[in-house]
């Protein structure tokens, strides 16, 4: 090694460390664990069983959640719509994840969402408040600005500051459990878009463009695992769904520590059903949040 390469390596190492520490080193490291797959997609009818199989393939849930940790599980429960509408994450899946996390010895499990419909109605009608509470989680309110804390986002071009829920900031591990569906504004919503329910101030995202701003929500603190409920995918009229919405019985669950890879896989699903792919996935890959090219990743496909 000559001096030049040594200095280059040193500099890039220092940069990586300084960036990495901001970006939650655990999730960075997890995404690149050799031997294990970067993304597991399962096909089947039973979401809890598919989750178990995915996590076994990924090396176990204990890779992502440690004993004594405070864990936040962030579903999509933004809509006052019954589970049949597939506008919110499947309650059985959320309950199953909560139970598994608690079995691993997590200290507390929190669930919240900054809802679009009235929060009481959304929590109740989505069936998630009941399912999560019965599974042993604390379902927290998120409908008032007082629950959120403003932080400065390092390296952000558009969202210089973001107001995150205090539980998002407090949690040792965050599991992002969105539902895959069509979205009138963003084209598609899955792992990346779901963080809009974790923060308070959504208006700046809409004002400056969803494709530009969505990835920047991940610059401050990233969830450690993304579990995308793609069992029944709303194909039009999203995100809420209307009486004339069509659905895709894709019967899939996409699990990955990499939100960009998870969304890239989801994009392939909706693309196969004729929907368009959002630009924010490519942008998220560009700012280094993950890998959008599935051919470069170790993807495991399982049928349950």
């Amino acid at each position: 090694m000559n001096r030049r390469t040594f200095l280059k390596t040193l500099a890039s190492g220092a940069l990586a460390v300084s960036l990495g520490s901001r970006l939650n080193p655990l999730s960075q490291a997890l995404a690149q664990t050799p031997g294990l797959p970067n993304l597991v997609a399962t096909k089947g009818a039973d979401l809890p069983a598919m989750f178990d199989k995915s996590l076994t393939a990924l090396g176990g849930l204990e890779r992502f959640v440690k004993k004594g940790q405070t864990v936040l599980i962030k579903p999509n429960m933004a809509w006052a719509v019954a589970p049949e509408g597939a506008a919110n994450t499947n309650p059985a899946l959320i309950a199953h994840i909560i139970k598994n996390v608690l079995n691993l010895g997590a200290k507390r499990v929190y669930v919240y969402d900054n809802t679009c419909d009235n929060w009481n109605d959304a929590y109740r009608l989505s069936g998630l408040e009941k399912a999560a509470t019965e599974a042993g989680a604390t379902v927290a309110p998120a409908h008032q600005e007082g629950y959120y804390q403003k932080v400065e986002v390092p390296g952000a071009e558009y969202l210089k500051t973001i107001q995150y829920h205090e539980l998002y900031l407090e949690a040792d591990a965050i599991i992002n459990v969105p539902v895959l569906k069509h979205h009138g504004g963003a084209k598609m919503t899955a792992a990346l878009k779901n963080l809009m329910g974790a923060i308070w101030d959504r208006r700046p995202l809409h004002r400056q463009g969803l494709d530009e701003t969505i990835p920047e929500m991940f610059l401050y603190k990233k969830p450690t695992l993304h579990v995308v409920d793609a069992a029944r995918v709303m194909l039009n009229g999203g995100p809420r769904g209307y009486g004339d919405s069509r659905y895709l019985a894709s019967q899939m669950l996409v699990v990955s520590p990499d939100p960009v890879a998870a969304d890239a896989a989801c994009a392939k699903i909706v693309e196969a059903a004729g929907l368009r792919v959002p630009d924010y996935i490519a942008r998220a890959a560009k700012i280094g949040l993950g890998e959008a090219d599935l051919t470069k990743l170790n993807v495991q496909r399982l049928v349950v």
Partner: peptide
């Protein structure tokens, strides 16, 4: 840019 907050 993309938005769609109203329709949402």
């Amino acid at each position: 840019t993309s938005c769609g907050a109203c329709a949402e």
